[in-house]
């Protein structure tokens, strides 16, 4: 399989999926992402957030949601530093950091985002570090979310 990743930057995992494959449950997320906004569905019955957006609330098994704009900040819940490229063509972006982020304004588990965390020193990044979202507008459809440290 011949693969082209375009220009690679150390620490930044390249976009490999260029379409959102969205449905009614997920499209509001991508619409907001195109405008650099982070939104998430909040259960209109019990207030639980869920990401990725999905048809049912895992707490109360109802379907209604209200879309809420979140501050876009959060805390690193866990992470890994990928040092060995999965594909030789990815060598130039290694090492990079990927992990799960608990989002401010949500309950945490059930609405974590799993993301590439950029602009960090892979040897200094820690669980509990504060981060903020940044969208890469790849094309008219896909805006890839990543997180970076909150500038102090």
């Amino acid at each position: 399989m011949s693969v082209e990743f375009g220009e690679l930057k150390k620490g930044v995992f390249p976009t490999i999926l260029f379409e959102t494959h969205s449905d009614a449950s997920t499209e509001p997320f991508w619409e907001a992402a195109r405008e650099d906004k982070l939104v998430a569905p909040k259960c209109s019955n019990c207030g639980t957030f869920r990401l990725p957006p999905s048809p049912y609330c895992f707490e109360c098994q109802t379907r209604g949601v209200e879309w809420v704009q979140l501050p876009g900040t959060g805390t690193i819940h866990s992470f890994t530093v990928v040092r060995h490229p999965l594909h030789p063509g990815l060598a130039e972006c290694c090492p990079y950091v990927s992990g799960s982020v608990e989002l401010d304004g949500t309950q945490g588990a059930g609405a974590r985002m799993l993301v590439n965390i950029i602009d960090v020193d892979p040897d200094a990044v820690r669980i509990g570090d504060r981060v903020e979202i940044i969208f890469e507008h790849v094309n008219d459809e896909m805006s890839t979310p990543r997180f970076r440290p909150i500038s102090k």
């Binding site: 997320f29 990725p52 985002m113 993301v115 896909m142």
Partner: peptide, 8 residues
């Protein structure tokens, strides 16, 4: 689409 581009 929420995870495919995260490198993990």
């Amino acid at each position: 689409a929420f995870t495919a581009n995260n490198g993990m």
